[in-house]
Design a protein around this nucleic acid. Structure first.
Lengths: 141, 141
DNA sequence: TTTCTAATTTGTAATGATTATTTTATAATT
DNA sequence: AATTATAAAATAATCATTACAAATTAGAAA
């Protein structure tokens, strides 16, 4: 996701209104490495915005997603997690505690490999989901 | 997934009953490369088993999944797709028609790469989800 | 073959995430 | 300040999945 200031610019250009709710969601996402869900964002904002609606969080995240500002993760089949870091990277989900963490290694060579063998498919994107046990859960046992 | 005959052996050993419904689901999965969902299996079996229940399909697939006989895909956030091919491989989903196809290339070297940089995480598994446009949809335009 | 029992099937209800809809409110512009 | 298009909020609807309870049945044992 862009910095708040450039995001504000983009919104103005796109004719999107800068409501307090949107700005609050932007700020919650900014630099957020917890891979939040709609509900976790909603819960964290309810305190300061008692009137905040779940729908607003859904809508704003969907808008940001369509703008390409945030990533929607598929690593958790139960609910969507979002990532304001839209630079190419991958994810690891701990099978024990459910925590999702970034895997920042670059695997771009994968694409060439696949394109080679499937020349009739146009691959626009890929992501790798890792599963296992995180350091914290390992230490617990 | 094992062949039907070895699967039947496994079930007997595990004390699982071989009901007509289960056998029908086994047969539907056997060699199935369409990455079926619970509902698609249910729909295809309703004709021959008018009494078949969606719950039974859910239960049987869950059982097979827990036995490690089938894979549960996370490439479609809307619903679970299953794959009776439990040999390590990956998937491609066409953004246009939604079709899911196998990517059979071996990427095991990825693991070593990650283990190296995250020595405190134990990675048990990973899968790659590719997205793009399939050959059929490419030709259409 | 018949009986017995634990496992399974089935139908239905509950849950939880997401989407749709409608009314009210408001940001941004004139 | 008035206008208007956009957004927020509240609520209802939808859809996949899970939970549950009652009826059925596969398979073992008599």
């Amino acid at each position: 996701m862009d910095s708040i200031v450039s995001l504000v610019q983009k919104c103005k250009k796109a004719g999107l209104k800068l409501t307090p709710q949107r700005l609050a969601i932007f700020k919650t996402l900014d630099g957020n490495k917890t891979h939040p869900t709609v509900d976790s964002i909603y819960q964290s904002l309810k305190k300061d915005f008692p009137t905040m609606s779940l729908t607003t969080v859904y809508n704003t995240l969907e808008t940001l997603y369509e703008m390409g500002e945030i990533i929607k993760l598929d690593i958790d089949p139960d609910k969507a997690h979002f990532d304001p870091d839209n630079k190419k990277h991958h994810h690891f989900k701990c099978s024990s505690c459910g925590k999702i963490v970034d895997v920042l290694i670059n695997f771009s060579e994968i694409l060439e490999n696949v394109e080679l063998q499937n020349s009739n498919f146009t691959i626009t994107d890929f992501n790798i989901n890792f599963r296992g046990i995180c350091d914290f859960c390992s230490k617990k046992n």
